[in-house]
Design a protein around this nucleic acid. Structure first.
Ligand SMILES: [Zn+2]
Ligand SMILES: [Zn+2]
Ligand SMILES: [Zn+2]
Ligand SMILES: [Zn+2]
Lengths: 171, 171
DNA sequence: ATTATTATTGAGATTCAATAGCAATAATAA
DNA sequence: TTATTATTGCTATTGAATCTCAATAATAAT
C-alpha cells in the first residue's frame, strides 16, 4: 500500500475526516524523500501555491507519526526535524558537527545490539536511534577552527534559503 | 583530575573568571550522577539555599559541554536534558515510551559499528548516540492502552514534583 | 438533495525553553 | 587601592510548538 492510502486508512480507522489539507501534506512529504522541518515543509507548499497553515502542519504531523509514516529526528539545531519512514529502508545518521551535513547509513549490527540488549534487560524494543557524531570527510581535512561556526551556520541555513530563493523566483 | 579542577583549568585556559556561581553549579551537577534538566538543577540549588539565576545556568552549561564535562541528551519531552560524562563510563539509553523510564546500558558492539561505519564513509566519529525505544519490563506486561498517556505524564513529572516537595518541606 | 452534526481549518493568542540586553556587581590585574 | 571588564541577575525577547475560537466544510442522517 502506498503512503497516501496507508494514511487514508489510518484516518478512517480513527474516525477522522479526509481533508484536502491532509492529502496535500502527505503527498508533499512523500515527494521529498529527505529530512525536513515544519518551516521547510511550509515553504515547499507555498511554492506550489498550497496555502496550508502551520497550525495544520503541526496538527497533522502527530497523525503521520502515529500511523507509522514518518518519524522525528534530532539534529541538535534547536527544533524538530522529520523524515518519511514508511516504504523507506531503516537507516541511521552520521552528523558532521562542523558543517551540519547528514550522511545516512544502514547496518545490521545495530539491530543485533538492539536484540541482545533488549533481551538482557527484559526490554521490548520497537525501534532504535543510532547516530555517529564527528567530522565529514570534507571537514575532517580542514583545520580552520574559526571557520567552523560560520560553515555550520551557512550549511544549516542553506536548505531554507534555497526554498526562499525559489519562492522569490516565481512570485 | 576531578571534574571541578578540570572545569577550573578550562575556565583559566579560556581567560574566563572563577566565580562562586560556576563553582556551585559544577559541584551540584557532579553530585547528581544522573540526568537532569535546567529546572531540576535550579530547584536542587534552591533547596540548598544556593540562589543562582537560571540565566547563569543557561550560560554555564555550554561551558561544561565545551570542556567535555557534560553532554546533552534527548528524551523527546520537548526540552533539553543533560548528564555528566567526565569520569563516567560512556553508556547508551533504553527509553520506555509508556512511562518515560530511562535504563542505561553499555555495549562494546556499538563502538565497533562506529569504527566500521566511520571507515566506510571517511567520517571521523568522535562520539555516538545509541538509543533503544520501546517498553520497559513493567510496561511491557501491562495492556491498558488508555493508561499509557497518564502514566507517562506522571512519571516525567515525578522528579520535578519530588524536588518541589522537598523544597516545600524546608521553607 | 437537504439538513444536521461536528471535525477541521486558519488566524491569532499563548506557552515555555532558551537567548539577549543592560545596569549593578565583583573578579582579576595594574 | 584602583582600574578594567567579565559576570551576574533581572527583564525583555525570541521562536518553536500548542491552544483558542469562530468560520468552514466533511460526513451522516433525513
Ligand atoms: Zn562537514
Ligand atoms: Zn535520515
Ligand atoms: Zn515503562
Ligand atoms: Zn545516561
Amino acid at each position: 500500500m502506498d503512503p497516501i492510502n496507508k494514511f487514508r486508512a489510518y484516518i478512517k480507522a480513527q474516525g477522522l475526516r479526509k481533508t484536502p489539507e491532509r492529502e496535500t501534506i502527505i503527498e508533499e512529504i512523500f515527494s521529498i524523500h529527505d529530512h525536513f522541518d515544519v518551516d521547510e515543509l511550509f515553504l515547499r507548499l507555498r511554492n506550489k501555491k498550497k496555502r496550508i497553515s502551520k497550525a495544520s502542519l503541526y496538527r497533522t504531523i502527530p497523525l503521520l507519526i502515529e500511523s507509522g509514516l514518518i518519524r522525528e529526528v534530532y539534529f541538535e539545531d534547536g527544533h524538530l526535524h522529520y523524515e518519511p519512514i514508511y516504504g523507506h529502508k531503516h537507516h541511521c545518521h552520521l552528523r558532521c558537527t562542523t558543517c551540519g551535513k547528514i550522511i545516512e547509513f544502514t547496518d545490521d549490527a545495530a539491530l543485533k545490539v538492539q536484540e541482545r540488549i533488549s533481551k538482557k534487560y527484559g526490554f521490548v524494543a520497537t525501534a532504535h536511534r543510532f547516530e555517529l557524531i564527528g567530522y565529514c570527510p570534507k571537514c575532517a581535512q580542514r583545520d580552520g577552527v574559526q571557520k567552523k561556526q560560520q560553515l555550520y551556520k551557512e550549511n544549516t541555513e542553506k536548505k531554507k534559503q534555497d526554498a526562499n530563493d525559489e519562492h522569490e523566483k516565481r512570485p
